[in-house]
Design a protein around this nucleic acid. Structure first.
Lengths: 334, 334
DNA sequence: AAGGATTTTGAAAGCACTTTCATTTTATCC
DNA sequence: GGATAAAATGAAAGTGCTTTCAAAATCCTT
């Protein structure tokens, strides 16, 4: 006989042959219960392994700390690597890691509405997602320390990277290598709820080209949905232009791999005939020998957690805005 | 008239001009409430400074709405993809996803000791990790429905893949393609706490070669730590042999990429001079045009969750052992 | 514009206990 | 032995919240 339910006072009452009132009283004011009855109830409690108070459960919930992470659904490897940094920093601490993946704008809004109330969290990391002032206020009024990754907000701690500078870095490098016909390939399907660092990268990229008086024809700026096939296709179009670029800056490593694939299929040699620079420095960038702009993804997650924990430990600490440096990692593709 | 009582949902409901049902719903499933109504309720909550009482909540809620996942620390992309499947299946269900990453055997043992007691979970998914009979019993005695991924246990539901068959598949394919000098490259740094499917893959691989009377010299079976550089190095050794293999079966896609890199550096053309077959079919396999054995990673996670939820809904259901089929995906490398 | 499907909503019935209040038992006193 | 106070007990009404179910409102189709 499976006693799968946790016993309640009803079970105890039945077992002891008394009413629930008596059991309850026995728990709260034992002196108001007859001695013999008390013994019977006590016996029943022992036999059933009854744990008084559902409150015990609520307390148990509070026992270990809980850190929540709101993240876009992990399609992009960059989210995963950030998450990895978060997880790494957290396992050392005695905190539970609760993941909330968001798949739409309203989904995100829902989280903001309910998490502060029912989430029971000690702290929150919001990854690569925007947050409105109203929601910031809500988090604050519920005393939930929060740190943002990749999205700045003056009232909260943030770990940011300078995407504009990253775009500049890539452009400068390619120009320095002698390229004059440089194309940009970014992703387009910005879900309406997500932030879009790629356009910042384009801004920086544009700036440098302009400063160097290098023309950037509009058909050299291409956006493709964030999938392997579509990126490859757009890259192929770029490479089949009568005057194809000699270098492509892909706004994410993932897309850089698509460019590489297109080049492979068209028998274009990299880096001799085509230079490719990516952005992110994912794990796989090293496998692909991809020259790329490194933003230390794991580190961003780790850092976010550290800031958060110090904030939890001492809520009086002011919010910090941290800018992670970007570096260019020179490998084989440019 | 100062209402010094702490506000309840009744107050919120009244203030927002809705029923308590709607307030409760807004707290727990905001997407089921109209947008305008939600705003009104949110406003009322803020004005009243309402905080739901955890104790009452725990009482009315019979379950905690939390699913735990114990996973090896996500170094390998395959873990991540499984996790992704889990997350996908869970967000639809309004369950919280709690992640426990394990980094050592004792770490894992700690989890087994504490999770059943303090975790208050409705269910548990254990990913690619072994579990002892004692721990199975512990989980059972605490009534925590559990499903295992990639590790079989007669008393629990499992989602397994047939690694031996996978090894066979790869070998058969390569033989069919005319190869007779086929090497195996697996990973070695089996952390003592993890399971090691790779050796099963080798078993299947060996079987087929033996059946086909194809010799497998011992120096054709190589194990390398699961890092890019070391894999590449071992692959290079293999390729620099006086009689190098004409095909390599890499026991994971990640390592297959290392092989590809080694070939690239040695100017060995793939697949003309060297065929490479991987295992997993990670996202990036497609980018690399890697021929590989597909185990539907996302699907395994999704499936595990489905089994778990059905088990939670009806605990009388018997444990199921599910074997996911493997297929060979033919791309450009073999 | 009708008809069906879907989304939003609220009334009411839990949940696991506590409390109030009425009832029964027992002890006490003359 | 009967009246009375005290002690022991239980029925039932809260507690703050969730959930089921059915009605109402809104959205599509044709």
């Amino acid at each position: 006989m499976a006693t799968n339910k946790t016993p309640t006072i009803y079970d105890v009452a039945q077992r002891a042959g008394v009413s629930i009132t008596t059991v309850s009283r026995m728990l709260n004011a034992p002196d108001k219960v007859g001695a013999e009855t008390r013994d019977r109830i006590l016996a029943a409690i022992d036999e059933l392994g009854f744990v008084p108070k559902a409150e015990a459960r609520a307390r148990a919930l509070r026992q270990t700390g809980r850190i929540g992470v709101i993240t876009p659904f992990f399609t992009a490897p960059s989210f995963v690597q950030r998450l990895r940094g978060i997880a790494a920093a957290l396992t050392k601490e005695n905190y539970e890691l609760v993941i909330y993946t968001v798949e739409s704008a309203s989904h995100l809004e829902n989280y903001f509405a309910s998490i502060p109330l029912t989430g029971n969290l000690d702290g929150l990391v919001i990854m690569s997602l925007p947050i409105s002032d109203a929601n910031v206020r809500r988090l604050e009024s519920h005393n939930i320390p929060t740190v943002l990754i990749e999205y700045p907000h003056s009232a909260l701690s943030c770990v940011e990277i300078d995407d504009v500078a990253g775009g500049r870095l890539a452009a400068e490098y390619l120009i320095h290598k002698g390229h004059r016909r440089i194309a940009f390939l970014g992703d387009t399907d910005l879900p309406e709820y997500a932030i879009h660092p790629v356009s910042q990268r384009l801004v920086g990229f544009r700036q440098v080209l302009a400063e160097a008086k290098i023309e950037l024809p509009e058909n050299f700026v291409r956006l493709a949905p964030y999938t392997q096939e579509q990126t490859r296709q757009v890259a192929a179009e770029l490479l089949n232009l009568p005057q194809p670029p000699t270098a492509i800056f892909a706004a994410t490593d993932f897309q850089a791999l698509g460019v590489l694939k297109a080049a492979r299929q068209l028998n274009i040699r990299v880096p001799e005939q085509l230079a490719v620079v990516g952005f992110d420095d994912l794990d796989m960038a090293e496998y692909a020998d991809l020259t790329t702009i490194r933003q230390h993804l794991d580190e961003s997650g780790r850092l976010a957690v550290e800031i958060l924990l110090s904030r939890i430990a001492d809520p009086s600490r002011p919010a910090q805005q941290i800018h992670l440096p970007l570096t260019l990692v020179e490998r084989e593709t440019a």
